Simulated scan of single mutants.
Amino acid sequence: MTSLDPVPLSGRQPRAVRNALAVLEEVIASGPGVTAKEISAALKLPQATTYRVLNLLVAEEYLVRLPDLRGFALGRRAARLALPVTPALSTAVRAVVDHLRGLVRWGVHLASFSTGQVILIDPDPDHPPSDGHVLARYPQVTALGKLLLAEQPDWRALVRDLRPFTEYTVTSSAELSAQLKVIAKVGLARQCGELRADRGCLAVPVRGPGTGSLVAGLALCGPVQRVAESNDELVGLLRDHADRLAPLLA
């Protein structure tokens, strides 16, 4: 057996996987607040098995215990099991993004973070971005992705592979952690040639009014040398339009 060969499943493991999937399905079908006893009865599973599976799914953040500890609901990671759905954008949202595009020669992209991934909901048609699956799988190499990671209690939950795309890609956990702390503090993400050596991006968060929660990100993408420059005017435009988008996307 080589290091690339899968580890053989023992006799009990396929059953354990099926039980975990069945419990997830039951929580989805029953809705938030379903109890361990109700899940056990519905699936005809021993209570000890049900509790064991629930504890595992909670530990892995596929489920969460409700505040009163009497039931369960879907957790953060469960949202990543569904295919992302691009929401329909209002005319007002498109007008704000198009206005920014008319003021700059850079690519302007709007992304949603509602699924816990970077999902482009209004990519610039004149400056096509990288493939969506790359943006979602490797958020650490994009400015929009760095915004998302900077909000996480532990960014490692969303980044499983610090692979290099270019010689400028950050592949050190310590360096990435330091970057994300700065981004969280200043509300501006910048990447210079980390995904494509000749391109870079600036991105600012779009936050829900009142709650301050991160709902989207607005990015400018252009030549890497321009991104690396001090560009207060461009950043000001970016922040102004992100503020205009906030009430429209909340």
Rank of each mutant, 00 (worst) to 15 (best):
A143P: 08
I121N: 11
R76H: 05
C201T: 10
K185E: 15
L218F: 09
V97Q: 07
L57D: 00
R226E: 15
I121P: 12
D131K: 14
A48G: 01
V170G: 04
L238S: 10
G212R: 01
R207S: 11
E194P: 11
E61I: 06
P164G: 03
G33R: 09
R207P: 07
Q13E: 15
L176V: 02
D198A: 15
S10E: 01
A197C: 10
E25Y: 03
L188T: 05
R52Y: 09
F165M: 06
L100R: 04
L83T: 02
W155F: 10
A203Q: 07
D240F: 08
A20E: 10
V108M: 04
G222C: 10
V58Q: 07
L89E: 02
R105C: 03
V182R: 15
E61W: 10
Y51F: 08
A42V: 03
P164N: 02
R244M: 06
P247F: 05
A16T: 09
T171K: 06
V7N: 08
T49S: 15
P209E: 00
A41I: 10
E60R: 11
V34P: 08
G11H: 14
A216Q: 02
I121Y: 09
V141Y: 14
L120M: 03
T35Y: 01
P84A: 10
C192I: 14
L158T: 04
A250R: 06
P84T: 14
T91H: 08
A78L: 02
Y62Q: 00
H109I: 05
V159K: 07
T171H: 07
K37M: 12
V34R: 07
I119K: 13
L120K: 00
P128H: 05
E60G: 03
D154I: 12
G107V: 05
R226W: 08
E60Q: 05
T115L: 05
V96A: 00
L176W: 08
P153R: 08
E175L: 12
D198V: 08
D131E: 14
L158I: 04
R94L: 15
Q13D: 13
V235H: 10
D161A: 07
R207F: 10
G102W: 06
D124W: 08
Y51W: 10
D243V: 11
A219C: 15
A242K: 00
A136C: 00
P14R: 00
L66A: 09
G102A: 13
A95G: 06
V23M: 09
S90N: 02
D68Y: 02
R105K: 12
V170I: 12
R52D: 12
R18F: 00
R94I: 04
L238T: 05
P129V: 06
G193R: 13
H127V: 00
A184W: 08
V53K: 11
S90D: 13
F113L: 14
L202I: 07
R15Q: 13
G33H: 10
I121C: 07
A143I: 09
S213T: 15
E61Y: 08
A250E: 12
R244F: 03
